[in-house]
Design a protein around this nucleic acid. Structure first.
Lengths: 188, 188
DNA sequence: GTCTATATCAAGATAGAC
DNA sequence: GTCTATCTTGATATAGAC
């Protein structure tokens, strides 16, 4: 039903789609080669031809996810151009926008999957470092920008693990407060 | 070397210690019944007598961790008594204090371990909900308290996964900024 | 309450045909 | 490039003796 159309895609993309769907729907613990192969409508052998190991598959999934998030942030940065603490705003907006999307469930699962092999997170580390550097070096109010970014990070991490205690009302209060923080800063 | 003394403890505690050490040192992916039994100096059969399944073991680990964190927060709340936005401060202080401790590595690992069985996080969900309710209902400045708590949550989540891009300097700037936020609030 | 031995199973990976 | 069949391993869990 909610399955992405896969006709016309090459095997690699089809496999990545299938794997992401599994992670999003039933969690990384159920991400087996068998399951991926079945969902991508090909055999395990065919799967392993495209991704020679499970690690290679995870690596591919993570890279694609990173690319998607960066692209979204890029779009939002453009649409927010001219605002104060722009980079922080773009990050906040991207995080909020992606939250409701399937992509977030994938991220959650992948994060869990990296527990056995933290090295898989290396590309994410690099990206975060670069984006953070942009954020801190271009902010009009560095402290506000850092806090806003961290707060959104906290919110998103809690929601990822389904641990968020915020009511819908509180959540929107928080979003408003973050915007105000980015506008006005911390009181003197 | 850094092994906790285990003489005089009952099997249950010895097992929980051993399991926590494994998770902290080599990650949840290596938390096998064999490894735990060996480290706790007993057989796999003996282990399974105390915890009839791996899930039961994980459940025990998580509960003990929650108890430890709550106890730490309790102590800190007392020592901070009288300050503005007390609950938020106690959470922030507890999070910062626990960061350097072994307990944080255990938490990281356990979080990963819950990927296969999200239900294990249920007790954590409950505790977070209760603490959040205290925080929001007693805060002198609710918005500041919420943001401070979320920011610390974000920092701690990033550090858990070794994803934090903050330099040592920036980290202490952030801590200072959070304190200021709790003192003065967001600017009007 | 703890031990040894073993059953069972799931999953990643390989080999070679087509 | 994809398939089937098979190997191998590592892990949970059970059974029954001590």
């Amino acid at each position: 039903m909610a399955t992405t159309p896969r006709a016309g895609k090459n095997s690699r993309e089809r496999i990545l789609d299938a794997a992401s769907e599994i992670v999003a729907e039933v969690g990384a613990g159920k991400l087996t080669l068998d399951a991926v192969a079945q969902r991508a409508s090909l055999s395990k052998g065919g799967l392993l031809y495209n991704f020679p190991s499970k690690d290679a598959l995870l690596k591919g999934m993570i890279q694609r996810l990173i690319d998607q998030v960066l692209a979204e942030k890029e779009r939002l940065r453009t649409s927010l151009a001219g605002k104060r603490n722009l980079e922080a705003r773009a990050s906040v907006a991207a995080s909020l926008k992606l939250h409701s999307a399937k992509i977030n469930d994938v991220a959650t699962g992948l994060l869990a999957a990296t527990a056995e092999n933290p090295q898989l997170l290396e590309p994410a580390r690099d990206v975060i470092k670069v984006e953070w550097r942009k954020l801190t070096s271009t902010a009009e109010d560095k402290e506000a920008a850092m806090l806003a970014w961290l707060a959104i990070e906290g919110l998103s991490s809690l929601e990822m693990h389904n641990l968020s205690p915020l009511s819908a009302r509180q959540r929107s209060e928080v979003v408003t407060a973050i915007e105000r923080l980015l506008d006005k800063g911390i009181a003197k």
